[in-house]
């Protein structure tokens, strides 16, 4: 290596290290990463603001379910929408009586230990996709919303 090249080499090292050095306002330090899954179900909104009697009844049933089952059981529902959301959406799509029937059917299916992997499609997170629209007994809806188990659904 000639003297000139050596000079350039040291100049290059000097400039590059000064350019990328640790600054006063940006100290290098270890990062604390959290690998815990967020527990959204713990931050539930139990407020009793309602628009009509139907809304009141719907919220009462959902809150009872949250209090006695969801919060005790944890975030373990294998379906999306989860069982409590399914109940709320079922009542919204139909009425209280039909929504309750849809919910009890869902709850029974949830208790089935051998839920077929080939029965429900999945959402990206791996949960089974099981929307209330399939259970309203509206044939057009069912044909429209039916998704084969091989598909991954955007929730």
């Amino acid at each position: 290596m000639t003297k000139n090249n050596l000079k350039f080499f040291f100049l290059f090292i000097f400039i590059s290290t000064s350019a990328f050095c640790q600054l006063d306002n940006l100290k290098w330090k270890k990062v604390d990463l959290s690998y815990e899954k967020p527990n959204n179900f713990r931050q539930r909104d139990y407020s009793f603001e309602f628009d009509d009697a139907g809304d009141f009844a719907k919220k009462s049933i959902a809150y009872t379910y949250w209090f006695f089952i969801s919060d005790v059981d944890g975030d373990n529902c294998p379906f999306r929408p989860s069982c409590s959301s399914f109940l709320m959406q079922s009542v919204e799509e139909t009425n209280i009586a039909q929504g309750m029937l849809m919910f009890f059917d869902r709850f029974t299916r949830d208790m089935n230990l051998y839920k077929g992997h080939y029965h429900y499609p999945r959402v990206k997170d791996g949960y089974y996709y099981d929307p209330p629209s399939l259970y309203t007994l509206n044939e057009l809806n069912v044909n429209f919303y039916y998704t084969p188990a091989t598909e991954v659904v955007d929730e």
Binding site: L101, F104, D105, T108, N143
Partner: peptide, 24 residues
């Protein structure tokens, strides 16, 4: 409730089964 839900769910399951046939 479980009994009635199951009767309802069986009808819904038959509908979904038929929708699967149409889809296939």
């Amino acid at each position: 409730f479980f009994y009635a839900g199951n009767v309802y769910g069986s009808v819904a399951s038959a509908q979904i089964f038929n929708a699967r046939i149409n889809f296939e």
